[in-house]
Design a binder for these strands. Structure first.
Lengths: 213, 213
DNA sequence: GTCTATATACTGATAGAC
DNA sequence: GTCTATCAGTATATAGAC
């Protein structure tokens, strides 16, 4: 993680645990990550982790929830833009950038969503997972709404709205899987990547106003 | 799995195991799936599984390799098409359809690729995994090559070829994550979905010849 | 070929020292 | 707050009966 935006949400002791946990969950996945793995990455024993987090699931959901907070915060900054198409483009860029800059946390979100699709949850996890999915759905709905507004104006054209939204979000989120941070990477580098994702997605939705920058 | 295309590759006894294993790996992921889970889905005990497969990893890689075979076979049927753009479109449709129709196996491929990116492999798995990744890279290169041919002809426009290929394949593969097979589903239903993915991806790549069907 | 043990190892979580 | 020690549960894989 570079310039981790979670710095100022919780006290630093817990944030360091969450940061390393996010890295472990990204590298090996939830099921294959042991608490000892996280402790090893922290350079301590699991006693420290269990002092702050009741269970491995608790730790995982804390990571994923932070990931969704990043996303909501990212697109909130676009609310003031009046024109639907412009707002959508700004949201898309913010989302794609968020995927790059908070990769580890977003992998936890992704795994959580997959867990839900699989229906593989224990009763104790269910409430927490349901809340995460609700947050994800709500987030997704914001995109759907602004997409539909743009379509009504004839600025987008696509047959099925549900599929279009999936394709849009998958494309915009995909950097979290294939983006490799370089050594002396700048914000500008990241923006350039995110922009290509945005152009791809908007063109894919049949953007009428040729995608201007 | 519906009309499973793996039917005629191995003898039916092993194929049934692989089919159920693919389902389990899709539902819970590799790490969270136990051999007993697979056995339970088969309605037998793990003795039967270990008679044919040396280890859980062996079972998993067998599933993933079959998944890649499906893909290679799918795009091989497009080789005869001369015009790059038309060939690309046919390949894209074949790929997207393959993702829908062999979902379970493709989830194993995906997990294998992620395992590789994470570098989380035991020495014994490494060779098998390396081969899987090589197969995936080779497959991916076929797309890259035909994309570049179309770009040279001015039929596609995108800034970075590497990113474009990732976006293309992610969009085309995404149905394996969100496609929900319906009850009385026909081939035509699947084709309709795949087509929207193809149109999205090609338009996203700046297809000049307005995507005709 | 398939099943029934069983050996062996690992992981999540707890309790108590410091 | 963090560490050490430990328990209980579960999973991979094997060996041998049938």
């Amino acid at each position: 993680m570079n310039g981790d935006p979670a710095e100022n949400l919780l006290d630093e002791g817990q944030m360091e645990i969450l940061r390393m946990a996010a890295l472990c969950f990204m590298e090996r996945g939830f099921a294959a990550t042991s608490i000892d793995d996280v402790a090893r990455k922290l350079g301590c024993t699991k006693g420290r982790i269990y002092h702050f987090f009741a269970s491995k699931a608790d730790l995982f959901f804390s990571v994923a929830e932070i990931g969704m907070e990043f996303n909501h915060k990212a697109i909130r900054s676009c609310e003031h833009i009046a024109a639907p198409f412009d707002r959508l483009r700004a949201m898309a860029l913010a989302h794609s950038l968020s995927m790059i800059e908070t990769r580890a946390y977003q992998h936890a979100v992704w795994q959580g969503v997959e867990l839900h699709l699989r229906g593989a949850t224990t009763p104790e996890q269910r409430n927490r997972l349901d809340a995460l999915i609700a947050s994800r759905d709500q987030y997704s709905d914001v995109f759907r709404d602004v997409m539909e507004q743009a379509r009504e104006r004839g600025e987008l054209t696509y047959p099925d709205a549900g599929i279009a939204r999936q394709l849009m979000l998958v494309a915009l989120s995909s950097p979290m899987f294939w983006y490799k941070p370089r050594d002396a990477e700048t914000l500008d580098d990241r923006i350039k990547v995110a922009r290509q994702c945005v152009d791809f997605a908007l063109s894919g939705l049949g953007a009428r106003p040729p995608v201007k920058r």
